[in-house]
Design a protein around this nucleic acid. Sequence first.
DNA 1: GCGTGTGAACCTCTTCACAGCG
DNA 2: CGCTGTGAAGAGGTTCACACGC
Lengths: 211, 211
Amino acid sequence: MSGKKVSERTIRRLSHYARCLRLSRIRGDSIITSGYLAGTCGISSAAVRKDLAFFGEFGKQGSGYEVDELLYNIEEILGTTDPPSVVVIGAGNIGMALIESGLAGTGGYRYRGIFDRDPSRTGLKCAGIEVQSISMLSAAVQKLGEVIAVIAVSPGEGQNAVDTAVAAGCSAVLSFTLEPLIVPEGVILGFVEVSTELDIITHSIRAGARI
Amino acid sequence: MSGKKVSERTIRRLSHYARCLRLSRIRGDSIITSGYLAGTCGISSAAVRKDLAFFGEFGKQGSGYEVDELLYNIEEILGTTDPPSVVVIGAGNIGMALIESGLAGTGGYRYRGIFDRDPSRTGLKCAGIEVQSISMLSAAVQKLGEVIAVIAVSPGEGQNAVDTAVAAGCSAVLSFTLEPLIVPEGVILGFVEVSTELDIITHSIRAGARI
DNA sequence: GCGTGTGAACCTCTTCACAGCG
DNA sequence: CGCTGTGAAGAGGTTCACACGC
């Protein structure tokens, strides 16, 4: 809709603002300031205002931003007012844990299915969702429309699972595996890398401990 | 040791290089080029060389980088040659799944314990590790030394768990919860946010679909 | 007075092009 | 000839300071 180009870093911040706004709304606040958002997200208030002003004049001078209105606008920018469906591929420990934990508080996302190629796992139930054979994925995607596939398979099976997800028509892939993955042009690829987060933390500990 | 200041973005890339090098080593390669690392990590070869040259002259002109040597140097920079211990707080779905999945392939990290404040969970065994009462955390940290606490508790319990971890002497906290958290100065804080990754992907899908 | 919106300065990071060395 | 190391140019993002409106 909007022809704006925004960096991933900005999108990441907008996502944080959105989460912060949801918490404010739960707490009953109707107005929020850039300074408050800045403090909660660990950045400067000027940066918050720059981010928001880039997309429109959402604030009221002298008071701040109306929580409901700002949240609506940010979700509009992110495209999460009507978010894609999410399915999990791999009904192992992590896959099942993700399903059981759900996506509460994330603003609209919901797990719509979990798939595994191991027949001994199909039929298991988990948080009201039944593990289906991977052969059912294609039909499920056709029914759901836009789908993000969360890859939670065993090490070494990542690329295989991604290829299956892509062939089934998934628009994007979010991988929990460590392996490098390849997707065709047009398919979005994201990673959740505990390993890298640990490395960053370790470096911070060591660097922060210097004199 | 080194007084260099490096950005988190650079550290994140170094972590990716390290993972790529481990895979190369397993494959038996002894030499790797900046172009190959660049391709696998999705950046330009010049950026890779800049990153590495900043810390020393690790490469051999005309051939490339020796895998073992470069990996050693990167781990030295990251501080992961002798990595901190990792413990999990919260023996729910995610905590148990993390323990069962282990940290294979991450280069040295290992889960050394899992703790929960719910007495009905203590004593459960998981991948050879027994769930301990949260009251044992302090003693465990004292024995382990430098400890990263992975927070995998139910929504709303995050800050409580963090406070406990900090009081027990943990050097850093990596949270899987969505809530904003506060830690005292000197304690490192990191997040794994599936919600934000989904937002980024959703935005990419919608933005990429524009004309 | 308070908090937003914004142009300008500032800084960091990335890319380019090429010299240098095996 | 191939690939690294690096100064210079360019792009992008952040901070600052202040005008504007409630």
